[in-house]
Design a protein around this nucleic acid. Structure first.
Lengths: 192, 192
DNA sequence: GCAAGTCAATACGCGAAAGTATGGATGCTA
DNA sequence: TAGCATCCATACTTTCGCGTATTGACTTGC
Protein backbone atom coordinates (compact mmCIF):
# COMPACT_ATOMS: atom_id res chain seq x y z
CA UNK A 1 0.00 0.00 0.00
CA UNK A 2 2.92 2.35 0.67
CA UNK A 3 1.27 5.50 1.96
CA UNK A 4 1.07 8.06 -0.80
CA UNK A 5 2.65 11.08 0.86
CA UNK A 6 6.32 11.64 1.45
CA UNK A 7 6.29 9.72 4.70
CA UNK A 8 7.25 6.48 3.00
CA UNK A 9 9.34 5.68 6.03
CA UNK A 10 11.36 3.20 4.04
CA UNK A 11 15.08 3.53 3.95
CA UNK A 12 16.66 6.08 1.67
CA UNK A 13 18.97 5.79 -1.29
CA UNK A 14 21.39 8.25 -2.85
CA UNK A 15 18.73 8.98 -5.46
CA UNK A 16 16.30 10.10 -2.78
CA UNK A 17 18.84 12.55 -1.47
CA UNK A 18 19.57 13.91 -4.94
CA UNK A 19 15.90 14.42 -5.74
CA UNK A 20 15.32 16.03 -2.38
CA UNK A 21 18.26 18.31 -2.99
CA UNK A 22 16.83 19.45 -6.31
CA UNK A 23 13.48 20.15 -4.71
CA UNK A 24 15.12 22.19 -2.03
CA UNK A 25 17.17 24.11 -4.57
CA UNK A 26 14.06 24.86 -6.60
CA UNK A 27 12.26 26.15 -3.54
CA UNK A 28 14.93 28.03 -1.66
CA UNK A 29 18.06 28.19 -3.77
CA UNK A 30 21.44 26.54 -3.72
CA UNK A 31 22.63 28.19 -0.53
CA UNK A 32 19.68 26.71 1.33
CA UNK A 33 20.91 23.23 0.55
CA UNK A 34 22.16 22.29 4.01
CA UNK A 35 22.73 18.74 5.13
CA UNK A 36 20.74 18.84 8.34
CA UNK A 37 17.90 20.81 6.82
CA UNK A 38 17.53 18.33 4.00
CA UNK A 39 17.75 15.43 6.44
CA UNK A 40 14.85 16.90 8.40
CA UNK A 41 12.82 17.18 5.21
CA UNK A 42 13.47 13.54 4.50
CA UNK A 43 12.62 12.49 8.02
CA UNK A 44 16.07 11.28 9.02
CA UNK A 45 19.22 12.73 10.55
CA UNK A 46 22.51 13.49 8.92
CA UNK A 47 23.86 10.18 10.12
CA UNK A 48 22.17 8.82 7.06
CA UNK A 49 23.47 11.47 4.70
CA UNK A 50 27.12 10.82 5.35
CA UNK A 51 26.67 7.19 4.55
CA UNK A 52 25.49 8.05 1.02
CA UNK A 53 27.73 11.03 0.29
CA UNK A 54 31.16 12.04 1.37
CA UNK A 55 30.47 15.76 1.57
CA UNK A 56 27.82 18.33 0.90
CA UNK A 57 29.60 19.32 -2.27
CA UNK A 58 29.41 15.75 -3.48
CA UNK A 59 25.63 15.82 -3.12
CA UNK A 60 25.43 19.10 -4.95
CA UNK A 61 27.58 17.74 -7.73
CA UNK A 62 25.45 14.64 -8.08
CA UNK A 63 22.21 16.60 -7.99
CA UNK A 64 23.41 19.06 -10.61
CA UNK A 65 24.64 16.25 -12.84
CA UNK A 66 21.26 14.56 -12.59
CA UNK A 67 19.50 17.77 -13.48
CA UNK A 68 21.70 18.38 -16.49
CA UNK A 69 21.11 14.82 -17.62
CA UNK A 70 17.36 14.54 -17.09
CA UNK A 71 15.25 17.59 -16.46
CA UNK A 72 17.16 19.94 -18.65
CA UNK A 73 16.99 17.87 -21.80
CA UNK A 74 13.25 17.27 -21.61
CA UNK A 75 12.64 20.91 -22.40
CA UNK A 76 14.04 21.13 -25.85
CA UNK A 77 13.31 17.52 -26.74
CA UNK A 78 9.58 18.15 -26.81
CA UNK A 79 9.69 20.80 -29.48
CA UNK A 80 12.71 19.54 -31.37
CA UNK A 81 10.70 17.30 -33.74
CA UNK A 82 8.61 20.20 -35.04
CA UNK A 83 9.78 20.63 -38.63
CA UNK A 84 8.84 24.23 -39.30
CA UNK A 85 11.39 26.40 -37.50
CA UNK A 86 9.01 29.28 -36.88
CA UNK A 87 6.39 27.03 -35.40
CA UNK A 88 9.09 25.30 -33.37
CA UNK A 89 10.17 28.59 -31.87
CA UNK A 90 6.61 29.71 -31.24
CA UNK A 91 5.78 26.48 -29.45
CA UNK A 92 8.95 26.72 -27.40
CA UNK A 93 8.07 30.22 -26.28
CA UNK A 94 4.54 29.20 -25.41
CA UNK A 95 5.71 26.25 -23.38
CA UNK A 96 8.20 28.28 -21.44
CA UNK A 97 5.53 30.83 -20.66
CA UNK A 98 2.97 28.23 -19.64
CA UNK A 99 4.98 25.73 -17.64
CA UNK A 100 7.09 27.92 -15.41
CA UNK A 101 7.49 25.32 -12.70
CA UNK A 102 10.21 23.23 -14.37
CA UNK A 103 12.21 26.42 -14.80
CA UNK A 104 12.45 27.13 -11.12
CA UNK A 105 15.63 25.14 -10.74
CA UNK A 106 17.15 26.97 -13.65
CA UNK A 107 16.21 30.26 -12.06
CA UNK A 108 17.67 29.17 -8.75
CA UNK A 109 20.94 28.13 -10.39
CA UNK A 110 21.04 31.43 -12.18
CA UNK A 111 21.27 33.11 -8.82
CA UNK A 112 24.11 30.88 -7.71
CA UNK A 113 26.56 31.52 -10.51
CA UNK A 114 29.18 32.43 -7.93
CA UNK A 115 29.44 28.80 -6.99
CA UNK A 116 32.27 27.03 -8.80
CA UNK A 117 30.13 23.96 -9.42
CA UNK A 118 27.25 25.91 -10.91
CA UNK A 119 29.13 28.22 -13.24
CA UNK A 120 30.46 25.68 -15.76
CA UNK A 121 27.20 23.77 -15.68
CA UNK A 122 25.18 26.83 -16.55
CA UNK A 123 27.69 27.82 -19.19
CA UNK A 124 27.17 24.46 -20.90
CA UNK A 125 23.40 24.44 -20.60
CA UNK A 126 22.99 28.03 -21.72
CA UNK A 127 25.29 27.48 -24.66
CA UNK A 128 23.31 24.42 -25.76
CA UNK A 129 20.05 26.28 -25.56
CA UNK A 130 21.35 29.24 -27.45
CA UNK A 131 22.68 26.91 -30.12
CA UNK A 132 19.24 25.38 -30.37
CA UNK A 133 17.70 28.79 -30.84
CA UNK A 134 20.33 29.88 -33.31
CA UNK A 135 19.75 26.82 -35.46
CA UNK A 136 16.03 27.44 -35.59
CA UNK A 137 16.53 31.07 -36.51
CA UNK A 138 19.02 30.07 -39.16
CA UNK A 139 16.44 27.75 -40.64
CA UNK A 140 13.97 30.58 -40.95
CA UNK A 141 16.31 32.11 -43.48
CA UNK A 142 18.37 34.47 -41.37
CA UNK A 143 22.04 34.81 -42.15
CA UNK A 144 24.47 33.31 -39.70
CA UNK A 145 25.30 36.31 -37.57
CA UNK A 146 21.78 37.64 -37.46
CA UNK A 147 20.54 34.27 -36.29
CA UNK A 148 23.18 34.16 -33.58
CA UNK A 149 22.35 37.63 -32.37
CA UNK A 150 18.64 36.96 -32.36
CA UNK A 151 19.25 33.76 -30.41
CA UNK A 152 21.25 35.70 -27.84
CA UNK A 153 18.54 38.29 -27.55
CA UNK A 154 15.77 35.72 -27.21
CA UNK A 155 17.70 33.80 -24.61
CA UNK A 156 18.50 36.91 -22.63
CA UNK A 157 14.79 37.73 -22.67
CA UNK A 158 14.08 34.24 -21.36
CA UNK A 159 16.57 34.56 -18.54
CA UNK A 160 15.29 37.98 -17.58
CA UNK A 161 11.73 36.76 -17.75
CA UNK A 162 12.53 34.04 -15.25
CA UNK A 163 14.08 36.48 -12.83
CA UNK A 164 11.37 39.08 -13.09
CA UNK A 165 8.49 36.67 -13.02
CA UNK A 166 9.44 33.76 -10.86
CA UNK A 167 11.66 35.45 -8.37
CA UNK A 168 10.66 39.07 -8.33
CA UNK A 169 7.00 38.47 -9.08
CA UNK A 170 6.97 41.27 -11.61
CA UNK A 171 5.02 42.21 -13.54
CA UNK A 172 1.87 40.98 -11.91
CA UNK A 173 -0.35 40.33 -14.87
CA UNK A 174 -3.80 38.87 -15.27
CA UNK A 175 -4.15 35.76 -17.35
CA UNK A 176 -5.29 37.73 -20.39
CA UNK A 177 -2.55 40.30 -20.03
CA UNK A 178 0.00 37.55 -19.75
CA UNK A 179 -1.21 35.84 -22.92
CA UNK A 180 -1.06 39.15 -24.72
CA UNK A 181 2.49 39.62 -23.51
CA UNK A 182 3.56 36.21 -24.78
CA UNK A 183 1.94 36.95 -28.13
CA UNK A 184 3.83 40.21 -28.28
CA UNK A 185 7.12 38.49 -27.56
CA UNK A 186 6.47 35.96 -30.30
CA UNK A 187 5.55 38.66 -32.78
CA UNK A 188 8.62 40.67 -31.92
CA UNK A 189 11.25 37.96 -31.76
CA UNK A 190 10.07 35.53 -34.41
CA UNK A 191 10.15 36.73 -38.00
CA UNK A 192 6.88 36.56 -39.85
CA UNK B 1 49.12 65.25 1.68
CA UNK B 2 46.64 62.57 2.56
CA UNK B 3 47.94 59.61 0.58
CA UNK B 4 45.82 59.13 -2.50
CA UNK B 5 44.90 55.46 -2.11
CA UNK B 6 42.36 54.01 0.23
CA UNK B 7 44.74 54.09 3.16
CA UNK B 8 43.43 57.43 4.32
CA UNK B 9 43.91 56.24 7.85
CA UNK B 10 41.53 58.81 9.15
CA UNK B 11 38.60 57.73 11.25
CA UNK B 12 35.58 56.34 9.52
CA UNK B 13 32.00 57.51 9.28
CA UNK B 14 28.79 55.62 8.60
CA UNK B 15 29.04 56.81 5.00
CA UNK B 16 32.38 55.09 4.58
CA UNK B 17 30.89 51.83 5.73
CA UNK B 18 27.93 52.18 3.38
CA UNK B 19 30.12 52.91 0.39
CA UNK B 20 32.43 50.05 1.28
CA UNK B 21 29.43 47.77 1.59
CA UNK B 22 28.22 48.69 -1.88
CA UNK B 23 31.66 48.04 -3.32
CA UNK B 24 31.77 44.66 -1.68
CA UNK B 25 28.30 43.81 -2.91
CA UNK B 26 29.24 44.78 -6.45
CA UNK B 27 32.31 42.59 -6.33
CA UNK B 28 31.15 39.53 -4.45
CA UNK B 29 27.43 39.74 -3.90
CA UNK B 30 25.17 40.43 -0.96
CA UNK B 31 26.00 37.26 0.92
CA UNK B 32 29.67 38.24 0.96
CA UNK B 33 28.83 41.31 2.98
CA UNK B 34 30.27 40.22 6.32
CA UNK B 35 31.14 42.58 9.11
CA UNK B 36 34.67 41.42 9.81
CA UNK B 37 35.52 41.06 6.14
CA UNK B 38 34.41 44.59 5.41
CA UNK B 39 36.26 45.84 8.47
CA UNK B 40 39.46 44.29 7.16
CA UNK B 41 38.92 46.01 3.80
CA UNK B 42 38.58 49.32 5.59
CA UNK B 43 41.61 48.70 7.74
CA UNK B 44 39.80 48.55 11.07
CA UNK B 45 38.15 45.90 13.23
CA UNK B 46 34.50 45.28 13.90
CA UNK B 47 34.77 47.23 17.10
CA UNK B 48 34.39 50.23 14.83
CA UNK B 49 31.47 48.82 12.90
CA UNK B 50 29.25 48.26 15.89
CA UNK B 51 29.70 51.83 16.90
CA UNK B 52 28.21 53.05 13.61
CA UNK B 53 25.56 50.38 13.10
CA UNK B 54 23.49 48.27 15.38
CA UNK B 55 23.50 45.14 13.23
CA UNK B 56 24.66 43.85 9.89
CA UNK B 57 21.14 44.18 8.55
CA UNK B 58 21.13 47.84 9.47
CA UNK B 59 24.20 48.41 7.33
CA UNK B 60 22.63 46.53 4.43
CA UNK B 61 19.49 48.59 4.75
CA UNK B 62 21.41 51.85 4.75
CA UNK B 63 23.59 50.80 1.83
CA UNK B 64 20.62 49.73 -0.25
CA UNK B 65 18.77 52.93 0.53
CA UNK B 66 21.78 54.94 -0.56
CA UNK B 67 22.00 53.00 -3.79
CA UNK B 68 18.35 53.48 -4.57
CA UNK B 69 18.70 57.18 -3.87
CA UNK B 70 21.94 57.93 -5.71
CA UNK B 71 23.44 55.46 -8.13
CA UNK B 72 20.22 54.11 -9.48
CA UNK B 73 18.77 57.42 -10.56
CA UNK B 74 21.87 58.54 -12.42
CA UNK B 75 21.22 55.94 -15.09
CA UNK B 76 17.97 57.16 -16.46
CA UNK B 77 18.65 60.81 -15.69
CA UNK B 78 21.37 60.99 -18.34
CA UNK B 79 19.15 60.02 -21.22
CA UNK B 80 15.90 61.44 -19.91
CA UNK B 81 16.39 64.88 -21.50
CA UNK B 82 16.67 63.44 -25.01
CA UNK B 83 13.48 64.62 -26.70
CA UNK B 84 13.10 62.05 -29.48
CA UNK B 85 11.87 58.83 -27.85
CA UNK B 86 13.56 56.52 -30.34
CA UNK B 87 16.89 58.23 -29.94
CA UNK B 88 16.39 58.20 -26.18
CA UNK B 89 15.89 54.45 -26.22
CA UNK B 90 18.78 53.86 -28.57
CA UNK B 91 21.11 55.90 -26.40
CA UNK B 92 19.92 54.09 -23.30
CA UNK B 93 20.64 50.73 -24.87
CA UNK B 94 24.07 51.83 -26.03
CA UNK B 95 24.95 53.15 -22.60
CA UNK B 96 23.89 49.99 -20.88
CA UNK B 97 25.95 47.95 -23.28
CA UNK B 98 29.00 50.15 -22.96
CA UNK B 99 29.15 50.96 -19.28
CA UNK B 100 28.54 47.65 -17.64
CA UNK B 101 30.36 48.56 -14.45
CA UNK B 102 27.59 50.60 -12.83
CA UNK B 103 25.26 47.67 -13.40
CA UNK B 104 27.24 45.26 -11.32
CA UNK B 105 25.40 46.16 -8.16
CA UNK B 106 22.10 45.69 -9.90
CA UNK B 107 23.24 42.28 -11.12
CA UNK B 108 24.39 41.34 -7.65
CA UNK B 109 21.07 42.38 -6.12
CA UNK B 110 19.28 40.40 -8.78
CA UNK B 111 20.92 37.30 -7.39
CA UNK B 112 19.86 38.10 -3.87
CA UNK B 113 16.14 38.43 -4.38
CA UNK B 114 15.62 35.87 -1.65
CA UNK B 115 16.63 38.46 0.87
CA UNK B 116 13.65 40.26 2.38
CA UNK B 117 15.42 43.61 2.20
CA UNK B 118 16.33 43.26 -1.44
CA UNK B 119 13.05 42.04 -2.88
CA UNK B 120 10.90 45.15 -2.34
CA UNK B 121 13.77 47.40 -3.35
CA UNK B 122 14.22 45.62 -6.65
CA UNK B 123 10.50 45.57 -7.23
CA UNK B 124 10.42 49.34 -6.94
CA UNK B 125 13.49 49.97 -9.06
CA UNK B 126 12.47 47.55 -11.77
CA UNK B 127 8.99 49.00 -11.91
CA UNK B 128 10.35 52.52 -12.27
CA UNK B 129 12.65 51.48 -15.07
CA UNK B 130 9.95 49.63 -16.91
CA UNK B 131 7.72 52.66 -16.59
CA UNK B 132 10.46 54.75 -18.11
CA UNK B 133 10.73 52.36 -21.03
CA UNK B 134 6.98 52.15 -21.45
CA UNK B 135 6.66 55.89 -21.64
CA UNK B 136 9.32 56.15 -24.32
CA UNK B 137 7.69 53.41 -26.36
CA UNK B 138 4.34 55.09 -25.96
CA UNK B 139 5.83 58.28 -27.33
CA UNK B 140 6.98 56.49 -30.43
CA UNK B 141 3.36 55.98 -31.30
CA UNK B 142 2.65 52.54 -29.87
CA UNK B 143 -0.70 51.95 -28.26
CA UNK B 144 -0.76 51.57 -24.50
CA UNK B 145 -0.63 47.80 -24.14
CA UNK B 146 1.89 47.29 -26.91
CA UNK B 147 4.18 49.83 -25.32
CA UNK B 148 3.86 48.09 -21.96
CA UNK B 149 4.61 44.70 -23.43
CA UNK B 150 7.57 45.97 -25.38
CA UNK B 151 8.90 47.62 -22.25
CA UNK B 152 8.59 44.34 -20.37
CA UNK B 153 10.38 42.50 -23.14
CA UNK B 154 13.16 45.04 -23.38
CA UNK B 155 13.64 45.05 -19.65
CA UNK B 156 13.70 41.28 -19.47
CA UNK B 157 16.34 41.30 -22.19
CA UNK B 158 18.35 43.76 -20.11
CA UNK B 159 18.14 41.66 -16.99
CA UNK B 160 19.07 38.51 -18.87
CA UNK B 161 21.91 40.30 -20.56
CA UNK B 162 23.36 41.25 -17.22
CA UNK B 163 23.20 37.70 -15.96
CA UNK B 164 24.63 36.11 -19.07
CA UNK B 165 27.31 38.68 -19.66
CA UNK B 166 28.47 39.94 -16.31
CA UNK B 167 28.04 36.85 -14.24
CA UNK B 168 28.13 33.93 -16.59
CA UNK B 169 30.56 35.49 -19.02
CA UNK B 170 28.49 34.31 -21.95
CA UNK B 171 28.61 34.79 -24.80
CA UNK B 172 32.27 35.65 -25.15
CA UNK B 173 32.25 38.07 -28.02
CA UNK B 174 34.88 40.17 -29.67
CA UNK B 175 34.45 43.90 -29.65
CA UNK B 176 33.08 43.93 -33.19
CA UNK B 177 30.71 41.05 -32.54
CA UNK B 178 29.46 42.77 -29.45
CA UNK B 179 28.76 46.01 -31.29
CA UNK B 180 26.91 44.06 -33.93
CA UNK B 181 24.85 42.41 -31.22
CA UNK B 182 23.89 45.72 -29.67
CA UNK B 183 22.92 47.04 -33.08
CA UNK B 184 20.77 43.98 -33.62
CA UNK B 185 19.02 44.49 -30.31
CA UNK B 186 18.32 48.10 -31.14
CA UNK B 187 16.98 47.17 -34.56
CA UNK B 188 14.77 44.47 -33.13
CA UNK B 189 13.37 46.22 -30.07
CA UNK B 190 13.11 49.80 -31.23
CA UNK B 191 10.61 50.53 -33.99
CA UNK B 192 12.01 52.23 -37.05
C1' DG C 1 19.82 -18.29 12.33
C1' DC C 2 24.03 -15.86 12.06
C1' DA C 3 27.39 -13.13 10.04
C1' DA C 4 28.12 -9.42 6.81
C1' DG C 5 26.48 -5.49 4.79
C1' DT C 6 23.34 -1.45 4.81
C1' DC C 7 21.15 2.43 6.74
C1' DA C 8 20.36 5.53 10.63
C1' DA C 9 20.83 7.98 15.50
C1' DT C 10 23.67 10.35 18.78
C1' DA C 11 27.35 12.83 20.42
C1' DC C 12 31.18 15.43 19.51
C1' DG C 13 34.89 18.66 17.33
C1' DC C 14 35.67 22.54 14.60
C1' DG C 15 35.52 26.93 12.09
C1' DA C 16 33.02 31.01 10.50
C1' DA C 17 30.38 34.81 11.50
C1' DA C 18 27.18 37.83 14.43
C1' DG C 19 26.86 40.28 18.33
C1' DT C 20 28.47 41.94 23.35
C1' DA C 21 31.38 43.99 26.94
C1' DT C 22 34.78 46.78 28.10
C1' DG C 23 38.57 49.54 28.03
C1' DG C 24 41.87 52.37 25.33
C1' DA C 25 42.99 56.04 22.00
C1' DT C 26 42.03 60.27 19.63
C1' DG C 27 40.24 64.73 18.75
C1' DC C 28 37.22 68.81 19.74
C1' DT C 29 35.87 72.38 22.80
C1' DA C 30 35.76 75.34 26.61
C1' DT D 1 44.74 71.32 29.26
C1' DA D 2 40.79 69.09 31.30
C1' DG D 3 36.91 66.73 29.96
C1' DC D 4 33.69 64.82 27.02
C1' DA D 5 32.24 62.63 22.84
C1' DT D 6 33.76 59.93 19.20
C1' DC D 7 36.04 56.13 17.27
C1' DC D 8 38.48 51.69 17.56
C1' DA D 9 40.72 47.14 19.56
C1' DT D 10 40.46 42.95 22.13
C1' DA D 11 38.40 39.33 24.16
C1' DC D 12 34.65 37.09 24.84
C1' DT D 13 29.75 34.38 23.94
C1' DT D 14 26.46 32.25 20.82
C1' DT D 15 24.79 30.20 16.83
C1' DC D 16 24.99 27.51 12.80
C1' DG D 17 26.50 24.23 9.72
C1' DC D 18 30.00 20.81 8.10
C1' DG D 19 32.20 16.76 9.05
C1' DT D 20 33.72 12.55 12.25
C1' DA D 21 33.24 8.71 15.38
C1' DT D 22 30.76 5.42 17.41
C1' DT D 23 27.13 2.57 18.14
C1' DG D 24 22.58 0.53 17.11
C1' DA D 25 19.20 -1.70 14.22
C1' DC D 26 17.37 -3.85 10.26
C1' DT D 27 18.10 -6.89 5.94
C1' DT D 28 19.98 -10.21 3.28
C1' DG D 29 22.89 -14.07 1.80
C1' DC D 30 24.68 -18.34 3.13
Amino acid sequence: MEAASKQERTRLSADDWELGALELIAEQGVSALAVEALARRLGVTKGSFYWHFRTREALLKAALARWERDDDRALVADVDPIPDPRERLRELFRRVAREVQPHRIYAALLKALDHPQVLPLMARVSQRRMDFLALAYRQTGMDRTTALNRARLAYAAYVGFLQLNLTLGLPKLSHEEFDAYVAHVIDTLIPA
